[in-house]
Amino acid sequence: MRHELLRIAGLPVLQNKVYDTTAAGRASPRGDMVLTQDEATGLVFNSKFDDALLTYDADYQNEQACSSIFREHLDAVLAIVKRHFLSPSLIEVGCGKGYFLNHLRQAGYDATGIDPAYEGDSPHVIAAPFSLGLGVSSDALVLRHVLEHIQDPVSFLRAIALANGNQGKIYIEVPCFDWICARCAWFDIFYEHVNYFRVVDFDRMFGRIYEKGHVFGGQYLYVVADLASLRVPVADPRWHIELPANFTAGIDKSRAVALANRGEKAVWGASSKGVIFAHHLRLAGIEFDLAVDINPVKQNRYMAGTGLKIVAPETALKTLPDGALVFVMNSNYFDEILMQSQGKFRLVKVDQNVI
């Protein structure tokens, strides 16, 4: 049996993919979201997810380490890793473009990255899925922001455990669904994320957890667990989920703020939150003039869904008039954005619904 939580039609399927034109961004693939809680396992996922809609290529740009704030987050993660992973041997499964892998290596770990989508030339990365056939194992594994993308997360973890000889500790980090629910963060519901996890899900998934908690202002949760203790989670009625009745009310509130401003409007943050925010606001009749992002590989490209042009902060300063309304997608970066915008704009914290 399954319990439906939320239904959204026609979401852009890859929020971090950028395009060459507005038309291409608007024509990007769409998929439907039916957020569901499985009543056998208690896990939350998109029951309409179709992996065939997702194609990761060179236009997929999700690097966040351009921000000093995010680099501070990675330092906090490294501190957790150091507390539990004492052996220098370490494997990062799903290392992406390798930024955190390099961070681990600079900290003294003999770290190997594994990612089938890796496009670089590092000798420390294996561009393949983690499997028994690779013949690699370690006492320590890192799995950051991978599990939310995997259709069957328990089977995926079981395959990792088998390939690692059913031993070792694993650090897992994912977005926190409790934070999303508490903040009514409708802009954090992404097609690309098939799964939505709470700390209690990992309590039921592992028999032995060494440490658990939240990082990045509560937006992410993490566990350090014993791979040998992995088990199929069993639903607990205490952890039944109902989304707040006003979960999507922020769309109307943001629309009202935008309508009250007759001048130019922009979105600061052209990653997942910004793409979904702009998508929903466009459906509500609000058109933005541009999006701002500090990641240079996104600049002068166009967002999925709305086709908004992405510009550098210095370009926004030249383009937008004083007092322009700018929606800040993630308040973790607010002070950084306030400094970069030089006090020129009227900034709105989307995840706090305050101005």
Rank of each mutant, 00 (worst) to 15 (best):
M1W: 02
H3M: 01
N16H: 12
T22M: 07
G25S: 14
G25I: 10
R26N: 12
R30E: 06
D32N: 15
V34Y: 03
D38Q: 10
L43P: 04
D57A: 12
D57Y: 09
D59L: 00
Q61W: 01
N62E: 15
Q64F: 10
F70M: 14
R71N: 11
L74V: 02
D75E: 11
L78S: 06
V81Y: 01
K82D: 04
S87H: 10
L90R: 11
I91F: 01
G98E: 00
N102I: 03
H103F: 02
G108F: 07
A117Y: 15
A117I: 03
A117L: 09
V125Q: 03
I126G: 00
G135W: 01
D139G: 10
I150M: 10
K169R: 13
D188T: 11
D203H: 13
Y210R: 07
K212H: 07
H214D: 00
Q219V: 01
Y222R: 09
R231E: 12
A235P: 00
E242L: 02
P244S: 05
A245K: 05
F247I: 10
G250H: 08
D252A: 15
K253R: 09
R262T: 00
R262L: 02
E264P: 00
V275C: 14
A278E: 10
L283S: 06
E287S: 08
L290H: 09
I294L: 14
N295A: 14
P296L: 11
L308P: 12
A312E: 11
T319E: 15
D322N: 13
G323F: 00
F327A: 07
M329D: 10
N330V: 01
Q342N: 11
Q342M: 11
F345W: 04
V348H: 13
K349D: 14
V350D: 05
V350M: 12
Q352T: 08
N353F: 09
I355G: 08
